[in-house]
Nucleic acid binder design. Sequence first.
DNA 1: GGCGGTAATATGGTATACCATCATACAATA
DNA 2: TATTGTATGATGGTATACCATATTACCGCC
Lengths: 230, 230
Amino acid sequence: MQMTQPDAALQKIEKAPQTLRDIVQDRLREAIIDGRFAPGERLVERPLCDQLGVSRTVIRETIRFLEAEGLVEIIPNRGPIVSTLTWDQARQIYDIRLLLESAAAAACAQAPHPEFATELGQALTAVGATMEDTEWANLLQATTRFYEVIFLQAGHSIAWDIVQRLNGRISRLRALTLAARNRERSGMSHMKAIHDAILSGDPDQARLAVQNHISDAANTARSFLENPDT
Amino acid sequence: MQMTQPDAALQKIEKAPQTLRDIVQDRLREAIIDGRFAPGERLVERPLCDQLGVSRTVIRETIRFLEAEGLVEIIPNRGPIVSTLTWDQARQIYDIRLLLESAAAAACAQAPHPEFATELGQALTAVGATMEDTEWANLLQATTRFYEVIFLQAGHSIAWDIVQRLNGRISRLRALTLAARNRERSGMSHMKAIHDAILSGDPDQARLAVQNHISDAANTARSFLENPDT
DNA sequence: GGCGGTAATATGGTATACCATCATACAATA
DNA sequence: TATTGTATGATGGTATACCATATTACCGCC
């Protein structure tokens, strides 16, 4: 039993004990992103407590976090509501995504890495596999994964955090645009273009492909937001 | 007493009643950004309560918010600490700022607006006025204001929120770089270049000027972070 | 004297109780 | 019947009390 030489078997205990708050935080965030609350709907604390079986303390701390994420807004002495989204805000978010995602894609294209190529290919294949899926959540997840691979390979983890947070705020739009069946295929072709451009080591082409992908999505989103239907 | 016609005198009550949490949130954030806590230092809740004269509830909800902002990190079952910053993270932050700020500056340059010109000029003058000031916080505030004018004119309010949040995370570096006396003047000249490029309606030149400003700041910051002094 | 175990302490996690405020409904009076 | 005042209820804001866990300190035993 020599301790000077670390045993590979049981290295470090890394269990990250999940607290109630973490669970509730994920649940509530998911609920909002999945659209189980309407935008502008009040999030009354006590009913949420009953529903989730936790105390108000937990709910309130969770809401503070989601407030900082931009998913909920607090009206003083009135309480939290699910954030609403104007087209102007959505436009800004798509603009920012365009900047961050094209930068990440370009960075990947400039520094090719063999195992990254297979990883990106797998991510793209996964997107294609969910294309015919009835569950749109899977497609959304696969798409997210595709970009995650790009951002992490580029070493842009902070930008990725920002993009994820922004995506949360436009989740309703993302769901709507994905539901638009005809866009699925175009989205797929755009992602293939991004994939190809990166692997061929062409940063400018990668930027362009990302731009096509996002502007396409933004246009679809705009038609939804400007036609007051949902 | 005709109510159909709104009286200009007492229009709408818009007081936004400040809650304890809001106050504490601002105070704590300011304290961290001002560097009154060392990076990695534990933020023990109960002492903070005594110090600020509020209950743990308030402190904890505040900390949740600051956690989402990236200013503090939570170690499960151990409590919050002031976030540390690696050079890699700082580099990423400067990269993102470069993207967002150059986009905003370019947008301003493309759509000139007369009253905006005077506003930007005033902001620049204010920066110059704080140049000789002994209180570095004033310089930082004036610099912030300069960029705020640009972002808001560009209609990039969300990007501005992001930049402000990122700036909070590198506040220590900003203070250090500003304290480097020799950089003040170069910072000023860079901002003047940005100002001139925008007013002359040259987006590319504006981008370039922003790039110079940020890369200069990033280089100064790197020398601090890589030399383990502070 | 070092090592292991147990007790004590520090501190975060959670629940609850109480108070403040705002909105709404109802009643009384003109 | 309309208007205004008041009472009541819903709900967020804040404080506190209690519990769980982890770290530390101390003590006895080998």
